[in-house]
Amino acid sequence: MNTFTAALWTETLKARRSLVPLLTAIGFSLAAVVDGLFMIILKDPEAAKQMGLISTKAQLMAGVADWPTFFNILGQAVAVGGAIVFAVITAWVFGREFSDRTVKEWLALPASRSTIMSAKFVVVAAWTMGLSLWVFGLGLFIGRLVNIPGWSLDLLRSSSVDVLGAAVLTILLLPFVALAASLGRGYLPAFGWAILTVAFAQIAAVMGWGDWFPWAVPALFSGAAGPRAGLLGAHSYLVVFGACVLSLMATYLWWQKADQTR
């Protein structure tokens, strides 16, 4: 067994033994469940009027109960909810070593720090992508259950790209969360970072330069503000990719150079 496989086994075991996978799965599943609830409300406007706030919100966000609307809401939920839930996962994977004070146990081992970092990133990527696929699958099941019109295979194909593409773009920005957890030596700075980027993404999108702001790109890609062709360009994907590479390099460099006093 090489050291990377060993590190990957280690990170997987730590995740399996924790409640965090279950809790994040439940939390993220709400995206599909609430989406289905909106569709039920929208299907019956009379019942919607009697339901107060949630009905008003559903009217504001959607409009009609059909598959295109359902996928559109799911895409937005994955992009914005993913930015928070995926950040929680990343903050836990990297920040727990400081909170549990276990970081010092793997700084002087035959398995290098880079190897352990790489295993952590692979686990984060697999975990968050797995969650995205789960929520998309759950969405399909709930959509079928609610029995809304407008289904087609073409729509499934394009919506898969919207929802899962938004998830991939969100995942590409997670190394920044890992960097924040490392620099801040714990969960909290990483959570703070995630909330800050979600807030700034909203501002950037409203001000019209969301296509240049990496953290606004996933939501714009999902179709939250209309067809992405008019909102994003090649430069938008480049800034996301560039931010990913930059934050990965910074995280690896920090782990090589920083004094570990905890």
């Binding site: 050291t3 590190a7 280690t10 075991l13 033994r17 549990d100």
Partner: peptide
Amino acid sequence: PAAYPDLSTRENLEIARRLHG
């Protein structure tokens, strides 16, 4: 000393064994 609290004593040592190759 520190150990992963959700893991058993044996699992904590198993991690060390694997990371030591």
